[in-house]
Structure formats: structure tokens, C-alpha cells
């Protein structure tokens, strides 16, 4: 699992000089070595920046989009949110310190964009209750009939995503960052701006509540028999 490196890295940032805006250059490639004295202090040209951004940030587009989709709840908004996030990241590229955790950086921008501009428009109240979570009770229910959890495999993707979408915001984002995208606890703590202990407890409750919900689906669909037919 990828470890967060941002706390350790103290690279001065080779993109810090890009705040300079040459007039009248839209999309023209800018060549090196033909600059006036006035421009000589510039380290990164717009072209450098775009190339660096394409090389380092764009490979994480799938992750940004998937998380956006789970945050926003529909594809149209997820696309807008992804585009807005990447544009903001591009404009703030001088703030990104090379060598630090780009994925966490992008996801932090995504999350702020979502909270500031999209959350109000979000769907109805969460459908999955995370307040009454008891540990490992699904296993207790299936340990006789299906101790290896084969019933999970019979669930269709749509049901799984629907169940995830039913989690309350902070539990959903924690679970998605961990179990869909594979971020470490420290990375999730950085992105969601809470202590690692909070990440742990949210993740525990989110996983157990989701498991219970999936188990209910499986029972409803007849993939597994409930322990007691009462």
C-alpha cells in the first residue's frame, strides 16, 4: 500500500516560478533558450507545467472520477466535479510539491470542490444506518451456512454501489478511499482532514454497516438463507 510521503518531503518545488504569465500566448508551444533577460528567471514554462501535469496528475483521473462518482451520486455531476477538480489542480500546480503524494493532493482538491459547490445538491438522507453497528454479526449469521462469504460474489455491482451510496457522507468517503482506491489510513486522514483514529472508527463502522446491508440484499435475493426463519 502506498505510504504518504508529503510530511517528509521538503523539495523546494521546481514549479514555484510558474506564476509568471507571458502576454498573448494561448496554446503556443514555448521553446526554451529564446527568452529575454526579463524572462530568464522562469523555471517552468506553461508547456513544462502542462507536461508535468499530464504526466503526474492525469494518471489518477480514474481514481478522481470514481471517488467523484461516489461523492456526487450521479455521472453527470461526477464528470463536472472531476473536470473542475483537475482544472483547479492545474491552476494550483505551483503549490504541489514534486515527490509528495499527488493522489492525496488531488483527492483533497476534489473533496473541497465537492463540499463547496456540490454537496448541497446531493441526494436524500443516507439509507444505511451506521449508528447501531455491532461487530462481526454478519459472520455470526452466516458461519454455519456460508463461512467463506460466497454470497458476496452473487451480488451484482449495481447493488454493491447502491449500498455504498447509502452510507452517510463521512463514512462513504472513508470507505471509498480505503476499500475502492486503497489509500492508507494516514492518506485518508490527510484527505478527509481528521485524525487517524477517526479514520479507523469510521472505516470499521462503514465496513460493518455495509456488510450488513449487503447481507440483507443477499437474503432478499435468495442468495443466502437467513439464520432464523422467524
Amino acid at each position: 500500500m502506498c505510504r504518504m510521503a508529503s510530511k517528509l518531503a521538503r523539495d523546494p518545488g521546481r514549479y514555484q516560478a510558474v506564476a509568471y504569465s507571458p502576454p498573448g500566448r494561448d496554446s503556443m508551444p514555448i521553446t526554451h533558450g529564446s527568452r529575454s533577460d526579463r524572462e530568464r528567471t522562469i523555471v517552468a514554462t506553461p508547456d513544462d507545467q502542462r507536461q508535468a501535469f499530464e504526466k503526474e496528475a492525469l494518471p489518477h483521473l480514474d481514481t478522481v472520477f470514481r471517488v467523484a462518482l461516489r461523492l456526487a451520486g450521479n455521472e453527470a455531476q461526477a464528470e463536472d466535479l472531476t473536470q473542475e477538480t483537475m482544472l483547479r489542480a492545474y491552476r494550483a500546480w505551483h503549490q504541489y510539491r514534486p515527490g509528495t503524494n499527488i493522489r492525496a493532493w488531488l483527492l483533497t482538491i476534489l473533496r473541497h470542490t465537492f463540499i463547496n459547490e456540490y454537496r448541497k445538491a446531493r441526494r436524500a438522507a443516507p439509507a444505511v444506518d451506521v449508528t447501531e453497528v455491532e461487530a462481526f454479526t454478519v459472520f455470526e449469521d452466516v458461519q454455519e451456512s456460508d463461512p467463506e462469504g460466497r454470497f458476496f460474489d452473487q451480488l451484482v455491482d449495481e447493488d454493491i454501489l447502491r449500498a455504498i451510496d447509502g452510507l452517510p457522507d463521512e463514512f462513504r468517503e472513508t470507505l471509498v478511499l480505503s476499500d475502492v482506491e486503497g489509500l492508507s489510513y494516514a492518506e485518508i486522514a490527510e484527505v478527509t482532514e481528521v485524525p487517524v483514529g477517526t479514520v479507523k472508527s469510521r472505516l470499521f463502522r462503514a465496513r460493518q454497516a455495509l456488510q450488513r446491508e449487503l447481507y440483507h440484499y443477499a437474503v432478499e435475493m435468495g442468495y443466502i438463507k437467513p439464520r432464523n426463519d422467524d
Binding site: A19, P22, D26, Q49, L58, M86, W93, H94
Partner: peptide, 20 residues
């Protein structure tokens, strides 16, 4: 097509540092 659209927007982004 989302990736294409994003790349196009970056190319013509007026507010990017270093852009015009």
C-alpha cells in the same frame, strides 16, 4: 471523452499560472 475534454480545457485555460 472526459480526459479529452480536460486536456482541451487545460490547453486553453486562461487562469493557469503561466498560461495567458
Amino acid at each position: 471523452d472526459l480526459k479529452k475534454r480536460i486536456l482541451e480545457r487545460l490547453l486553453f485555460d486562461k487562469d493557469a499560472p503561466g498560461g495567458s
